[in-house]
Design a protein around this nucleic acid. Structure first.
Lengths: 136, 136
DNA sequence: GGAAACCCTGTACCATGGTGCAGGCCGTAT
DNA sequence: ATACGGCCTGCACCATGGTACAGGGTTTCC
């Protein structure tokens, strides 16, 4: 299979595949006599693995680790589970941070009245403060 | 006040201040005869405004807009409120996306048993699938 | 057999939010 | 008066996840 076919089947750009190869996320495939990369269906599955992992919040660096874990004969399913649970905690921290932001911003917006002037805007005022109690 | 003093008071790097100036987030201040930037306390307040807005989840681009809104005489407090509420919705979408990720990953991790082998790992299997039901 | 469509490499570029460094001038303290 | 720290500009670089383009060779289709 040529790189364009793999790209089409996996729903990514041709450059993206070469980018993944450079980043070590995909093995360098054998080449034809004229230097064209020759892929099998395995390449398509690998790209889908990467894309699914991205959807679950893994960065390319983490996906690289995940792929290394998968190849290492000493890795158990429990190791993968542990890795996933750490990622869950990471996602929880990000959610908590966003939730704080949202609460702070909502609180400020609630204090706005339609008849207020800019000089009396609670949002701008809070942003100006030395140590605003919002976003804590 | 010299740029180093402003940096110290605002708790940022000197280069960061010059970076903000290049990005239009801070006005170019007057210079001494020898070309040194001369700041007032206003600069320190401006940096704090930027930092607080970042904590609330605004990007530098958005902070730029916010600063423009603040200067525009036609802007009302209700306009700022509207802007903040749009940002709240944006944050909500990001939270929803992360929550989906978390749920999918937790579900997969729950299915792992300690006695499973790698060839039978529900997480890796899900990532391999053509159309995994996770991360929906 | 010739044009179009594909592939190759290398390099630069996009956004985001800065950091760091080289080479040179300025200001102040001893 | 000279050393040291601070400031100046311009440029390069960091991570992240790609995208684009130039300048070539190849394959495929009519």
């Amino acid at each position: 299979m040529k790189i364009g076919d793999v790209a089409k089947r996996a729903g990514v750009n041709v450059q993206t595949i070469r980018f993944y190869e450079r980043k070590g996320l995909m093995e360098a495939p054998p080449r034809t006599a004229s230097g064209y990369r020759q892929y099998t269906g395995e390449a398509v599955r690998r790209i889908r693995f990467i894309k699914h992992a991205q959807e679950l919040g893994f960065s390319l660096r983490e996906i690289h680790e995940l792929l290394s874990l998968r190849v290492d004969p000493h890795t158990t399913c429990a190791d993968i589970q542990q890795y996933a649970l750490e990622k869950v905690e990471d996602i929880e921290r990000r959610i908590a941070s966003l939730t704080r932001m949202k609460r702070a911003l909502s609180t400020l917006a609630e204090r706005c009245g339609t008849d207020r002037t800019l000089g009396d805007c609670p949002i701008l005022d809070a942003l100006e403060e030395q140590d605003p109690k919002v976003a804590g």
